[in-house]
Computed example of a mutant assay.
Amino acid sequence: MNSARIEVDLGPRSYPIVIGSGLLATLGKTLRAHGLRQTDAFVITNPQVGGLYFESVRAALEAADFRRMVRHEIPTSEEGKNWDEFSGTCAALLAAFPDTGSVPLVILLGGGVVGDLGGFAAGVFRRGVPFVQIPTTLLAAVDSSVGGKVAVNFGGVKNIMGIFNQPRLVVCDLELLRTLDPREVRSGTSEVIKYGAVCSASLFDQLEGEDLEKLLAREPAVLTDIVAQCVALKARVVEQDEFDKKGIRNVLNFGHTIGHALELSAEYALTHGEAIAIGMIAATRLAVKLGVCAPAFLERLQPLIERAGLPISFADQPGLFDRVVRAMQMDKKFRDGKNVFVLPTTVGAWQQVENVDWALVHEAVRSVFH
Rank of each mutant, 00 (worst) to 15 (best):
D84T: 15
D143L: 11
V113H: 00
N46R: 01
Q48M: 11
S87Q: 11
P47W: 04
N82V: 05
Y53G: 12
F120I: 06
L138E: 01
W83M: 09
G128M: 13
F120E: 01
G101C: 05
L109C: 06
G112Y: 14
G51E: 13
F125V: 03
V106E: 02
H72L: 03
W83N: 09
V142I: 05
C90M: 08
P130F: 03
T100A: 09
D116A: 13
E79C: 00
F66Q: 03
E73S: 03
V57M: 07
G115D: 13
V70M: 10
A63T: 11
P135D: 15
H72Y: 15
I107V: 14
D65C: 06
A60I: 13
A141E: 04
S102A: 14
L105F: 05
L31Q: 07
L105G: 09
A64P: 09
R68V: 04
V106C: 11
P75R: 13
T76Y: 08
A59D: 08
L109K: 03
S77Q: 09
P104G: 03
E85N: 15
R68D: 00
L138Y: 02
L93Y: 12
S87W: 02
L117C: 04
A64H: 12
E73R: 02
A91V: 13
H72G: 04
V106W: 01
A96P: 01
D40E: 14
A121H: 06
G118A: 15
L93R: 13
K81N: 04
I134H: 12
S56Y: 07
G128R: 15
V132I: 00
V49F: 02
D84S: 13
I107E: 05
I44D: 09
L105R: 14
R71W: 00
V57T: 15
V106Q: 06
G112C: 08
R71T: 01
R37P: 00
G35N: 09
T137W: 00
T45S: 10
T89C: 06
V113D: 00
Q38N: 14
F66I: 03
N82G: 15
I74L: 07
C90R: 12
S56T: 10
L139N: 10
A122V: 06
T89H: 02
V113W: 00
V142F: 05
Q133R: 13
E79T: 07
R126V: 10
T76V: 13
I134M: 15
Q38P: 06
A141I: 06
F97Y: 14
L117A: 05
A92W: 01
A140F: 13
G119K: 12
W83S: 12
P47H: 10
G128D: 10
T100G: 07
A41T: 05
P104L: 02
R68Y: 01
P135C: 11
G51T: 10
L94W: 11
L109G: 03
E78I: 02
S102V: 13
N82W: 04
D65I: 00
A60H: 10
Q133K: 13
P135L: 07
E62W: 04
V142Y: 06
